[in-house]
Amino acid sequence: TTYYDVLGVKPNATQEELKKAYRKLALKYHPDKNPNEGEKFKQISQAYEVLSDAKKRELYDKGGE
């Protein structure tokens, strides 16, 4: 599973699309609303952290993490 899959976006997604997808999923899986989905929330946050940063995203796209 790639970070793009976690957020449900395509690899060519814009920053705005990433932000929108992250917010939607973060609300859905937030531990306050969904106590059993803490791990999913962490995955979503990690994916967004990497993909929202241009340098980290470039490194990730080249095969790094």
Score class of each variant (00 low, 15 high):
Thr1Gly: 12
Thr1Val: 12
Thr2His: 07
Tyr3Leu: 13
Tyr3Asp: 01
Tyr3His: 06
Tyr4Ser: 01
Asp5Met: 08
Asp5His: 08
Asp5Glu: 11
Val6Tyr: 06
Val6Pro: 00
Leu7Ile: 04
Leu7Lys: 00
Gly8Ile: 02
Val9Tyr: 00
Lys10Cys: 14
Lys10Phe: 08
Lys10Glu: 09
Pro11His: 10
Pro11Trp: 11
Asn12Leu: 06
Asn12Phe: 07
Ala13His: 02
Ala13Trp: 01
Thr14Phe: 02
Gln15Asp: 10
Glu16Asn: 08
Glu16Phe: 06
Glu16Ile: 08
Glu17Lys: 04
Glu17Asp: 12
Leu18Trp: 01
Leu18Ser: 00
Leu18Arg: 00
Lys20Leu: 14
Lys20Thr: 12
Lys20Cys: 12
Ala21Gln: 05
Tyr22Asp: 00
Tyr22Lys: 01
Lys24Ile: 13
Leu25His: 03
Leu27Met: 13
Leu27His: 10
Lys28Ile: 13
Lys28Val: 09
Lys33Tyr: 14
Lys33Ala: 12
Lys33Pro: 04
Lys33Phe: 14
Asn34Arg: 07
Asn34Glu: 07
Asn36Leu: 13
Asn36Ile: 09
Asn36Glu: 13
Asn36Phe: 10
Asn36His: 13
Glu37Pro: 05
Glu37Cys: 15
Gly38Phe: 14
Lys40Ile: 12
Lys42His: 09
Lys42Ser: 08
Gln43His: 08
Gln43Cys: 11
Gln43Asn: 07
Gln43Ser: 08
Gln43Met: 11
Gln43Leu: 14
Ile44Ala: 04
Ile44Gly: 01
Ile44Gln: 01
Ile44His: 01
Ile44Glu: 01
Ser45Thr: 15
Gln46Gly: 05
Gln46Lys: 14
Ala47Cys: 02
Ala47Gly: 01
Ala47Arg: 00
Tyr48Val: 01
Glu49Arg: 11
Val50Leu: 06
Val50Trp: 06
Val50Ser: 04
Ser52Thr: 06
Ser52Met: 10
Asp53Pro: 01
Ala54Met: 12
Lys55Tyr: 13
Lys55Val: 15
Lys55Gly: 10
Arg57Leu: 03
Arg57Ala: 02
Arg57Pro: 02
Arg57Cys: 03
Glu58Trp: 08
Glu58Val: 05
Glu58Gln: 09
Leu59Glu: 15
Leu59Cys: 11
Asp61Ser: 02
Asp61Ala: 03
Asp61His: 03
Lys62Val: 07
Lys62Asn: 11
Lys62Cys: 09
Gly63Asn: 13
Gly64Val: 15
Gly64Trp: 15
Glu65Leu: 14
